[in-house]
């Protein structure tokens, strides 16, 4: 056999082996979370808050953390949506392409999306001290909003850039202002915005390091913006650190819930994106 054919065989084998190893370990990951979590998952887990002695193996569930996570991620995504659309529309429609603010803003978005979430946690905690807020649902929302803002901006910007140039041009030609152009292109990128919301939500609900100091943790239901709120990732973290086996099993069950939530979000992103693509003017 020629050398090049041997090389081909060797590398094909290596590649096949790498793929197998990667997919096997990722499937093992999901598998072990399901395998360990499913037996501990019961109705009480998703319908009850922790009762007294929950962390010693007594009754209760993690409904408070599930609700807390949903409220927190929902609030954070709402704040960052309200900010990100003006930002993206400004850099795409108002400011000119090479201007300092335009370049700086894109750069900031890029850099912020690489900043570790623990840094946002530290910074958010400092902001809360300045504003005089204790660790609370609101504090967590503000912090996580900063964390997902660059994610959201990137996702919206990606679709905003794809709007065909003829569209704003024809709106301009009708004598409309840039603000009208923005309204038209927003309608055009609505499916993209929905996808951006879902992606940010998935990111927000899974992050633990940013809420560690800012949202606090409690066994109560999250009923007020100014009270501490439990979140699923932290609930998993605290349960796995318990020495009681039953509580550890519940950590696996909570992880299963969190993974299921996030996977169903990503799946629905795909479905929505493929369905709504058809309705957009090309």
């Amino acid at each position: 056999m020629k050398g090049r054919i041997i090389e081909e065989k060797i590398f094909t084998l290596l590649m096949a082996f790498s793929s197998l190893a990667i997919f096997a370990s990722l499937i093992l990951l999901i598998g072990s979370v399901i395998f360990k979590g499913a037996p501990a998952l019961d109705l009480a887990m998703v319908t009850e808050a922790p009762s007294g002695g929950f962390y010693l193996g007594k009754k209760g569930g993690v409904l408070n953390a599930i609700l807390g996570s949903f409220f927190l991620a929902g609030g954070a995504v709402f704040i960052s949506l309200v900010l990100s659309i003006p930002i993206v529309m400004y850099i795409n429609h108002y400011s000119s392409k090479g201007s300092l603010l335009n370049t700086a803003t894109r750069f900031s978005i890029d850099v912020l999306s690489g900043v570790p979430s623990i840094i946002f946690g530290v910074f958010g905690f400092s902001i809360m001290i300045i504003l005089g807020i204790k660790a609370s649902l609101l504090g967590g929302m503000i912090t996580v909003a900063m964390l997902v803002l660059p994610v959201m901006c990137r996702a919206v910007d990606e679709v905003a850039r794809l709007v065909p140039e003829e569209l704003p041009e024809s709106v301009h030609a009708l004598g409309a202002t840039r603000y009208d152009v923005i309204k038209v292109s927003l309608r055009q990128i609505l499916p993209g915005i929905l996808t951006a919301i879902m992606i940010s939500f998935g990111r927000a609900i899974g992050d633990a390091a940013s809420v560690l100091f800012t949202a606090g943790f409690t066994d109560e239901m999250p009923l007020s913006l100014l009270q501490p709120a439990a979140t699923l990732p932290l609930s998993i973290f605290f349960q796995i650190n318990s020495p009681v086996a039953e509580v550890q099993n519940r950590a696996y069950a909570s992880a299963l819930i969190l993974t299921a939530v996030i996977l169903s979000i990503s799946l629905s992103v795909r479905i929505i994106a493929s369905k709504m693509k058809k309705k957009v003017v090309k």
């Binding site: 990722l26 969190l258 996030i262 990503s266």
Partner: peptide, 15 residues
């Protein structure tokens, strides 16, 4: 792979 990229880090830690 796309789905797995979204799994939160606390689940990786647990695993």
């Amino acid at each position: 792979i796309d789905l797995l990229a979204g799994i939160p880090s606390v689940v990786f830690g647990l695993w």
